[in-house]
Nucleic acid binder design. Structure first.
Lengths: 351, 351
DNA sequence: GACATGGGTCGAACCGGTTCGAGGATTCCG
DNA sequence: CGGAATCCTCGAACCGGTTCGACCCATGTC
């Protein structure tokens, strides 16, 4: 059941079948009908490997993300889902690669063996050797995230600096003076993860600007770490009245810690941060947060990559997103007992 | 930078390079060194498409799951992660396919165009046309889940019947008499999703056995639906004192509903169900649940698939898992005000 | 009637690997 | 010293597509 078989049964040459299918040269209606009939009858579909070999494109894009040893977060899940669906709309398949560094076997396979036409990279670091490598060999790629020097790269990113700052201003406006910052795990910060660094920067600068007293923490990507982190926060400064978190996976643990310490959210303690909306709504009270538009970002990344693949000489493009803070129910003025959380900021979705 | 180039520079024929790399025929040490030298110098890696075309194997497995329109759950995330990592250990890559039905374009591509050597299917239905089709064309696959007639299939599944029953018995032992069941969304139940059906069966039978008064509900895969569902439960029968859920994504909403109704968990109301452990621990109080061992299941599925690919004539194999209920902090005896939740069931992880 | 035009088809070469059969060079044996 | 066995290497064919150049046959034009 290959193209030769089709050709034989239709009484034409292999090249005619190929042209009938691709339309790259005219084929008479009569011949086309005959070929189509045989194809329908046999249920023929051209072999992807052979086609890829012949025309140098696999119609596959690689999705590169760090290995899961440290578990995946909900945000990553949303990326994977949206990238896969957006790619399918362009008739591209998605190959997953749980790759960390440049030297990684799976990453090398993706590129060196030409398994994919292009790649989308998640969890970008400020200095990212994977991206450096891709740029060096001029391999089409789009980063979800932005390095320290993103000029010339294709990327779609989140303005973590601005988002963390917006959280600070929101809390400061509510009168909070002692605020903690819950970052991603320390090893990721040390590895130079973009979100962790820019988020920390934005938080620190905005806090200084508003004259707040702050402490910053790293926290593991799971509920238990979140609990432990919150205990440390209250131990280090029991007068803390609010926190900003970039750590989605720790959120449940942070809430539990507050409950155990007898701090009611948002009456005694305000919580906010940068979290995908879908997950911000799973906690009670729902989190007032800068909603990471993970689905939109995945879609945009695929759009950019396809554009780049279609026109290899196109100039680099990017999207920097800064979604507004969605006011929900986890923040309130400091040191009061309001019936109405977050007054002056519109109506929370669930009071 | 193809095999011919390597051959030329090493002063040997293309076939000799191939044999030096594959080891399928003896090559002198001297020649091998020379070839390896050239390869290292040029950083050569054989082209995956060409290799796949020549030997008929892509070294890729397909991971088929339903489109995300309805969002992904945490459990699915864990599957994707563990399958990808397990596959990498065997030097297989993973191709994602967000495919629903037999007629789906992406699913057809996977098989018809021979993009993958085998497939792992998620979200199995009792009557699953995708599996029927795969079986009909004798395509190597492993299902995560079990159809109504799994004989002859390869699969790794969860004994949802037993798990739901175990939840019922746990609640009945604690003295609960009026229990609700929160299932996956109605459209999935109607579509014949295995977990929804077997879970419902197990729940219903065990409840009848224990003489409980029950109501069963379908619930959307998100927090808002969970909240709405809980409101309906308490509206339909305010005397309900416990619930069993298969719906991980709704969990946050169920908890919120209970909080809003002023029912304290576990003092006034017990919650349990079948949920991946990692997600059971994000809610407060932590959920007493049958922990879905998603990572283990993903790994087992890959192991089975690789075995099947290595030996196409091997007899069908499967794994049916029934993890025990992990006692955490969300269940307690009915109608009491215990200091110590779930007495008689060991020490909860966090009292 | 000679000649360009163009639609439709074919054969051959090519993409970059793998694999088979054959053959040259050594070595071992009688 | 001749013949068999062993070790290594090579050329050619093949996997299943795509694409190029050439050719044939109608038409249209002067």
């Amino acid at each position: 059941m290959n193209i030769g078989e089709i050709a034989k049964r239709a009484g034409v040459s292999r090249s005619t079948v190929s042209y009938a299918l691709s339309g790259k040269r005219p084929v008479s209606q009569e011949t086309r009908d005959k070929i189509q009939g045989v194809i329908d009858e046999l249920g023929y579909q051209p072999n992807a490997s052979a086609r890829a070999l012949a025309n140098g494109r696999t119609n596959t894009i690689g999705l590169v993300f760090p290995p899961a040893g440290n578990h995946y977060t909900g945000m990553q899940l949303d990326f994977i889902g949206s990238v896969t669906e957006a790619a399918a709309a362009y008739d591209y398949d998605v190959l997953l690669s749980p790759s960390g560094v440049d030297s990684d076997r799976s990453f090398q396979r993706l590129l060196g063996e030409r398994r994919v036409d292009g790649a989308i990279l998640m969890e970008i670091r400020l200095e990212d050797d994977r991206l450096d490598h891709l740029t060096a060999v001029d391999f089409p790629s789009v980063a979800i995230g932005r390095t320290a020097h993103p000029e010339g790269n294709w990327w779609v990113g989140l303005d973590h600096t601005a988002l963390a700052a917006a959280c600070v201003h929101h809390l400061a406006d509510l009168g909070h003076r002692r605020v903690a910052f819950v970052n991603r795990p320390e090893q990721l910060l040390r590895a130079g993860y973009e979100s962790a660094h820019r988020g920390l920067d934005g938080f620190t600068k905005a806090a200084a600007e508003r004259g707040l007293t702050v402490r910053t923490y790293c926290c593991g990507d799971d509920a238990a770490s979140g609990l432990a982190c919150l205990e440390r926060i209250l131990h280090d400064d029991p007068a803390t009245t609010a926190l900003v978190t970039l750590n989605e996976a720790a959120l449940g643990g942070l809430y539990r810690g507050l409950a155990q310490a007898g701090r009611h959210v948002p009456r005694d303690f305000s919580v906010t941060g940068v979290v995908a909306g879908r997950w911000a709504e799973t906690v009670t009270p729902q989190l007032t947060a800068a909603d990471v538009p993970a689905e939109q970002m995945g879609r945009l990344a695929v759009d950019l990559l396809v554009k780049r693949l279609d026109d290899p000489d196109a100039p680099a493009r990017h999207h920097l997103l800064a979604p507004p803070i969605s006011l929900r129910a986890s923040t309130a003025p400091a040191g009061t007992t309001p019936a109405d959380p977050a007054p002056g900021f519109g109506t929370p979705i669930r009071p």
